[in-house]
Design a protein around this nucleic acid. Sequence first.
DNA 1: TTTTCTATCTATAACCC
DNA 2: TGGGTTATAGATAGAAA
Lengths: 185, 185
Amino acid sequence: MTRKKVKLDFITNDSARKATYKKRKNGLLKKVNELSTLCGIDACAIIYSPYETHPEVWPNTLGVQRVIARFQRMPEMEQIRKNLNQESFIKERITKTNEQLRKQYKNNRKKEITELMYQCLTGRGLEDLNVVDLNDLGWMLDQNTKEIYRKVESIKKRAPEQKAAPPLALQVPPPTPRPTNGGGC
Amino acid sequence: MTRKKVKLDFITNDSARKATYKKRKNGLLKKVNELSTLCGIDACAIIYSPYETHPEVWPNTLGVQRVIARFQRMPEMEQIRKNLNQESFIKERITKTNEQLRKQYKNNRKKEITELMYQCLTGRGLEDLNVVDLNDLGWMLDQNTKEIYRKVESIKKRAPEQKAAPPLALQVPPPTPRPTNGGGC
DNA sequence: TTTTCTATCTATAACCC
DNA sequence: TGGGTTATAGATAGAAA
């Protein structure tokens, strides 16, 4: 049972590291095989470990030699310029992870405000809320109101003959224009 | 939404193949990075594709060169003898898949028999069952009975002082020895 | 130690814009 | 074409056998 997200760091426990190595090495070789098969491309992988005297490779010695030969033939300067190097790879990962974090924050905020909104429906007062919360709450109410209008229009358009009258008696006033707070939640 | 299990075969649709390539290439490089970091090992991957003039590699040109140099230094004969070659890799996969299939059969059979057992509890007759089903049903009843005994013993052992008497009045007879049918279900 | 189990995390196919 | 979303398939950490 994967208790926590694995932190991407050297595993200091020897036996745990070995177990992880064996599992992940198999998974990795399988992935290379799949990529090569699905997309019909040339690829190779070479993995050294302290557990085996020889490296584990995909697809086989000759296949690796062939890919290596192709790789060696490239002009060196171009290689360095174009290739994904470890530093840029990690930087890219950091960017992606930060992006995920940002989304998660946004999502959490939406959930908080939704929760607040439902509390208001059951009698919660607004006295103790600060201006940011009030603003976001207003934003969410606007969004929901707009959504309702959109759905009503969509229903009217889709089936105008089925129920021409009476029109829906919604008397909700249109949402008051409200200063944006930089993208809402 | 992954509708079906992906069949491991060349993707003939060009755009689908390209999309899959890009996703899986990223996933693969990430996996190599993780393996190398978690287990502190030397590894490299080289991927050629028709979408780029240069191969995508991990970790970087110099890292790949280093691993290649190490690889090239190995006596060729040993390489060929010891390395995982593509044919044996695929054979291994076939073996593993067959193993999974066998387990699934066994599991399905257990579920069938369990279902049958519960039906019997609600009045189903045994008249139309063949000898194999009857045998497996008997086996499952034995297993369940044994399990009950095990649990009773376990409870007695764990808390003998809490409830020394009266002993549990289970009058279920011990399971009748029954000829095995080659591993049961 | 290795194998097995399984809850949980991760990758990704199909879809949508 | 590329980026985002969602549901399912797949990988795997940790525990138990």
